[in-house]
Each structure stands twice: as C-alpha cells, then as structure tokens.
Design a protein around this nucleic acid. Structure first.
Lengths: 100, 100
DNA sequence: GACCAAGTTCGATGATCATCAAACCGATGT
DNA sequence: ACATCGGTTTGATGATCATCGAACTTGGTC
C-alpha cells in the first residue's frame, strides 16, 4: 500500500524559488510533473550521483515542493503542485508551463 | 529627458529564478513594482552597502528582469514586467502577487 | 542467512556568491 | 575649478552550496 509521509508546510516563497533555481532540481520537478504520479528517484535525473540527487530531493522536500512516499518498499518522489498553488497561486504552474 | 538603455533579451528561466531567489533582490523587485515607474536606486534597499546593492542591480539586469534608465543624470531602475511576462507568462506576476 | 538494489547520510573538496571598503567616475551645483 | 552626491568597479573575505565517494540502512530475493 502506498504510504505517504506526514504533510509538511510549504516553505517560504524564498525557499521555493531557491529550490527551483537550480537546474538539476528544476529538471527533477519537470519530470515529476510529466509523470503525474509518484516517480521512482532514479528516473528523475541524469548526470549526477545518487548522493547528489538525494541531496536535491531533500532541498525540494524541505521547500515543500515535493514529498516522499514509499510504494512497495521503493521510495518515490511526488510533486505537491496543488499544495504549492494553494499558497502561491500561479507560481509553480507558470514555471512548469514556461518554455524549456 | 528620460534616456533608456538598449533593450536586452530576457534571460533563461533559470537566470530569472536565480535572480529572484535572493531576498535582497526580491525586495528590490517588489519595491520597483510598487513604484510602478523608474525608481532611484537608493529607495530600493536597506541594510546593505551601496556596492552590494549595485551588484544586485547588475544581476537583475543581466537576468532581464530590470533595466536601467537615466533621468536627469540620476540612475533609475525599472521593472521589465511586460517583457518578462511575454517570455514566461505568469511567472513574475504570480511571484509579485504572492503573500509576503 | 547471504545477497543485492535503491536511497540516505557523512565528510570532504571546490566553486559560487553575497558582502564590504576603497577607489573611481559622471553629473550637478557653488 | 572644486566639491559633492549617486552609482559603479575592483579586490578581498567568508559563507553557502553543489558535488562526489564511501559507509550505512532498508526491503526484497535467492
């Protein structure tokens, strides 16, 4: 059964923007959005090590942009688009809609 | 007579987000937006030195978020809201609309 | 139980960046 | 001409941060 973690608050606008200002993290967020469902960590990045990826996941989670859920023992990352939109309407959705 | 500088391209989304992810710069942008017109540099910040402020202005300009214009010999900074919106619709406006 | 795959944490390294003071520059006013 | 005010540039310093490898953990598999 999918086991989602305790709901955290969305961070400050500053935190959210800082989280999205790194190219590796923005790409991760784009892939999560494209997936539209909890995605296994490994499919969310290329070109960086596991430890670096884990570090970026943590920053995204702490900003409240994503959350972790465990599905069948595997860790997945999921975009919290609705939650972020509720606090900062339009911010994340417009970033996701922006041209590459 | 107001003398605006050559129009620069708006930078990458990454550059724009990075420019806005610094608290000092976001505050500058908010004040420019509140002013709604070219604003003298000095009214756009507190708590940092002139040189630091000048550094932040440069980063905002290079990201294409602001431009410089000279009015009666005085340097002014002006938000390029329409230009940024044209390239990344909703991004800057939603950030400006976000709660403090 | 031994093994393996997937993630996380730790510690260290290098790069980037925010910050300041001081020197510099351009325009205005005396 | 000189002083002054507003802003920029330079150079340096300290902090933050992205990155990695290695060690550790947890869950599934044989």
């Amino acid at each position: 059964m999918p086991e989602t973690e305790v709901r955290a608050e969305v961070g400050s606008l500053q935190e959210v923007l800082a989280a999205l200002s790194d190219p590796v993290r923005l790409e991760m967020v784009r892939r999560m959005h494209a997936a539209g469902a909890p995605a296994a960590c490994a499919v969310l990045y290329d070109d960086v090590s596991k430890s670096t990826a884990s570090h970026h996941f943590k920053i995204l989670r702490e900003a409240g942009v994503t959350q972790r859920s465990v599905i069948g023992g595997q860790t997945h990352q999921e975009l919290r688009l609705e939650d972020v939109e509720a606090v900062y309407p339009g911010v994340l959705s417009s970033i996701l809609a922006a041209p590459r």
